[in-house]
Design a protein around this nucleic acid. Sequence first.
DNA 1: ATGTATGCAAACCATTTGCAATGAC
DNA 2: GTCATTGCAAATGGTTTGCATACAT
Lengths: 164, 164
Amino acid sequence: MLKISMEKENKVRELVRQKFTEYLTANKFRKTPERYAILDLIYTDQRHFDMDTLYEAMNERNFRVSRATLYNTMQLLLECHLVLKHQFGQNLSFYERAYNNDFHHHLICSHCNKVQEYKDAELKTAIQNKKIKGFIPEHYSLYIYGLCSACARELKKNKKFNKP
Amino acid sequence: MLKISMEKENKVRELVRQKFTEYLTANKFRKTPERYAILDLIYTDQRHFDMDTLYEAMNERNFRVSRATLYNTMQLLLECHLVLKHQFGQNLSFYERAYNNDFHHHLICSHCNKVQEYKDAELKTAIQNKKIKGFIPEHYSLYIYGLCSACARELKKNKKFNKP
DNA sequence: ATGTATGCAAACCATTTGCAATGAC
DNA sequence: GTCATTGCAAATGGTTTGCATACAT
């Protein structure tokens, strides 16, 4: 079972590497080891991540890259749609794999800022099937803001205490 | 006709002022002239704006406020849902009125970064009617990324030129 | 050999913070 | 009178940039 899922992971990594190569070739960008190492790490360990965690993770893997290279490469990965970028209100950007990553929406708690994934095939289809005049859609992000159960509970409790 | 819409605008301004007052009172925050001036300007001139334009606009209106106050007030307006915040990939935050502002989604061109509003009642209902287990939704943002017509045309043209 | 990509350090810039002065309560 | 709020200026921190070096082509 574990073995099968690892084989699948390897296959995905292989595939995205191919896609990346195509993109680099098509645009006459160089195929540097740094770029592939970053892509590999993202498709091995990191489902959701920010730049800092990625930077640390690269170091731990003994493949040191500069932050400049990280940002440069991320730009390329965004352009060829192998990575998605999110900003949930704070000033920190989050990224996630875009390929073979079960597509999901995001629930953001306006109280504790926690982010959860939210899968809903119905919404997904509804949004993806929209024909929009004068616009060719590539991908989308749906962020739903509200209260997570923990915060809802907490706020309710506090209300009780505050009663006169 | 113009008169009627101006009367409507005044009414909305009146209403949001009331809502803001309720919020400030409920939380024992002070009702400073700066706070109301900022709210007023937003509900007069500014449908979509970033902090810098708002800052300039306040100055032009001869109501000078510091950037610190602007950020502080915006925080309050976000909390009481009179203003919405958006981040479309760049590091600049955009804001818009949340009250009596025909609700819309956003189309973002991944090529020129232009943002257009996109109204779709069907999607709106579909998203708003979702019951989500363990989460109480307050509001949501849907961002659709892709190519605007101008960029689609331009890219097509360039492709032709590049043919061998 | 050529010129793109890298690493480093400095620069950038939106946002946040500390603190003294102001003014809402 | 008290203490939250303001303005100012400095600090913060994620991201970008300039430049010399390394290395993909």
